[in-house]
């Protein structure tokens, strides 16, 4: 049941045909997001900066945390987490928001989800500027290990796309996943050791932290920016496997269900 002439089965040819659409959608997401604000794109820089300042004050005065170079520790975690949470929760709406188009034109459905995740990647890359600025301000040495941050970023991107595809698909059928996911994200925030040291979590629950792929990616980012060391090989392997598996599951889930979208949107 393939409508030929639209080349559904020729994935790559199709992707190339619509790659310009992908770029246009990413542009649109970013433009629309900042169009009405005075500071414009600078909001994506201000926000993590303010977040960092507030939490640094709280944690260095109230809780007396002993994390070395707390601002960088916090920012790496925060940037990665925002990327994931923005990307995945906007993915949930990506199919539903574009229902007008999907009902009228044939467009590969994953393009919409992919565009949302890619726009949060752009925001993430922009906010790396903040990280560099804070690194200069706190006199954190720049090392060549910094370049290795490419690895966790790519893994995080793949993981987010996978999760985004799964969420986008099931949100079409069950709209209230959105509310559940909000709660889940809050839980995940605490299970990723973003603003507290990982070892304050009791040994009993350490396993939760270790199997949380987000924590793994954040640790890898810290290895690159903060600790200037090699990745933990186990984390690297585990992170890669999780990312690829989630992408594969995402693609399968979407392809099995996308023909039924039209009946539900």
């Amino acid at each position: 049941m393939v409508v030929e002439g639209i080349k559904v089965h020729r994935f790559i040819a199709n992707f190339l045909k619509y790659r310009y659409l992908l770029i246009e959608l990413v542009k649109k997401n970013i433009k629309i997001k900042y169009r009405r604000s005075v500071l414009g794109i600078f909001w994506s820089l201000m926000e993590p900066l303010l977040f960092m300042i507030v939490l640094t004050i709280i944690f260095s005065t109230l809780f007396k945390s002993d994390i070395a170079n707390y601002p960088i520790y916090l920012l790496t975690g925060r940037l990665a987490f925002t990327f994931f949470s923005d990307g995945s929760s906007q993915s949930m709406d990506s199919i539903l928001i574009n229902r007008g188009t999907i009902k009228k034109l044939y467009v590969p459905k994953y393009i919409f989800t992919l565009s949302v995740v890619l726009s949060s990647l752009v925001t993430y890359l922009l906010s790396l500027i903040v990280l560099f600025a804070v690194m200069i301000a706190t006199q954190t040495p720049f090392t060549t290990f910094m370049f290795l941050a490419v690895v966790p970023t790519i893994l995080l991107l793949i993981f987010t796309i996978g999760v985004g595809l799964i969420l986008a698909t099931y949100t079409v059928f069950f709209r209230d996943i959105k509310h559940l996911y909000g709660v889940f994200l809050t839980l995940l925030l605490y299970a990723s050791a973003i603003f507290f040291p990982a070892d304050i979590i009791p040994a009993k629950f350490q396993i939760l932290l270790q199997i949380n792929p987000l924590f793994v990616y954040i640790e890898m980012l810290r290895d690159a920016f903060l600790y200037a060391t090699w990745f933990d090989p186990i984390q690297l392997i585990y992170g890669t496997i999780v990312a690829i598996v989630s992408l594969i599951i995402g693609i399968i889930v979407l392809y099995k269900n996308q023909d039924r979208f039209i009946l539900y949107i």
Binding site: V3, L105, D259
Partner: peptide, 12 residues
């Protein structure tokens, strides 16, 4: 191509 048929074939 917006919908796919439950049965049968469409060639365009």
């Amino acid at each position: 191509g917006v919908m796919k048929p439950t049965e049968g074939k469409i060639k365009v």
